[in-house]
Design a protein around this nucleic acid. Structure first.
Lengths: 224, 224
DNA sequence: CCATGCTAGATTATCGATAATCGATTGCTA
DNA sequence: TAGCAATCGATTATCGATAATCTAGCATGG
């Protein structure tokens, strides 16, 4: 309730190059991301306005942007709520992601060595965190896959990838897998093989391994 | 300049179930779509507000929604402009679309007969319009591909497909092809074969044909 | 007891006005 | 005349207040 929030530009009217609406939007995204606003939470405009020491207008605009990008939904005179993905939509999102990344890995294979270096680093992070810290694991995994998508050289791939908020969804999937007692070790191993085949420039092999990775994720969904 | 626009809710304050912001957004989308606002057009808030007989606020919110969905961009204190896709981004969008639809056709093949019926209808429209009315051709082609994407059963596919605004981009590509003197007849023929293979439930054949369709589109881009 | 209508409180939608910022122009100086 | 700063008009960003609408709870009548 207190002003944990962004400062209301107390003195310096210049120097801060971002407008309220942008800062508020990022604040809201962050809170949705870290679970502070779970799915279904109503985002009340005046309450947020009071908290951030701004008027209703920039709050509304931030919400409209989030609505456009699909993170929240709003209904006339009934407010704006954090959009929760049901299991079906989650599976469908991952179906799309799998399709996208199978193609991305093909485009990325003739890639520069620094991509491999990055992927190696992220894979080390994954392996390191797998047994001990599942939140750190998912961070590394998200970075791995996003980097690979970037390496495709197709910016629209990346935009779409980002717009589906796998950074958020990933956590949900992961918790589901962990809760079911699934070990992350097989995932680490599969990513190792994926990376080896990328380095060997083995396109069909890498694509097949990518499919295997996502098949395992889909298993986590199928088992309710 | 005059009020060709939506009525400002003259009397009946009830009965219209959509808010200003939604009507304004749809109005703006329509104008972008039909070329009334070409890429780069600055959308001035007060001017639009005057035209629509509303205040600045609902205009801004409509713009923020469009920004979230990527149709316009805005820069602090410099206004909002219609986003124009450069050729590179266009190619990348179609790369994504091809990837998506190659997968969609695979998912759609065990589809209900009514899907085939729809596709047949749209293909007839394409064939009918190909030689005479390229705008009608593109309408039919867009419907054909969107219907096929729907038939995949994956709603996220459709959402992403829609979000990339191929209904708009398609027109641009088409004009490019027509301007280069390309006949649409080969496209019609390829779609005919695609449809035949879908009906024959020949997944690899249909996928291959889909790739051919998009390869031809990419040609139109490659030739500047 | 149930259905219907009404009121109060909460919340969103819109307004009109003001502040902040930008781009171009003008006028001054050397 | 080139450079530069002050200024002006246009435009966006934000504000505070008001109108419209929703929900829940209560009252009323059958």
């Amino acid at each position: 309730m207190a002003k944990t929030a962004l400062k209301p530009v107390p003195k310096e009217p210049a120097l801060d190059r971002t407008c309220m609406r942008d800062r508020i939007r990022e604040m809201l995204v962050a809170r949705i991301l870290d679970g502070k606003y779970p799915a279904g939470t109503q985002l009340k405009e005046l309450a947020l306005a009071r908290e951030f020491n701004v008027s209703q207008a920039p709050i509304r605009e931030a919400l409209r942007e989030l609505e456009g990008s699909g993170l929240v939904t709003s209904e006339r005179y009934r407010g704006t709520r954090v959009r929760g993905a049901d299991v079906d939509e989650m599976r469908e999102s991952y179906e799309l992601r799998a399709t996208l990344e199978v193609r991305a890995v093909e485009l990325a294979i003739p890639c520069a060595p620094e991509v491999i270096v990055d992927l190696e680093q992220f894979h080390r992070d994954m392996a390191d965190a797998a047994a001990r810290d599942s939140e750190r694991y998912i961070d590394a995994a998200v970075r791995f896959h996003r980097r690979l998508t970037e390496a495709s050289g197709n910016r629209v791939f990346v935009t779409v990838w980002d717009s589906l908020h796998f950074d958020i969804r990933g956590r949900i999937v992961l918790r589901r897998m962990v809760a079911r007692g699934s070990s992350l070790a097989p995932q680490v191993k599969m990513h190792r093989e994926l990376l080896d085949r990328i380095r060997a420039k083995d396109v069909p092999g890498a694509q097949q391994m990518m499919r295997k990775v996502f098949a395992r994720v889909d298993d986590a969904f199928r088992r309710h």
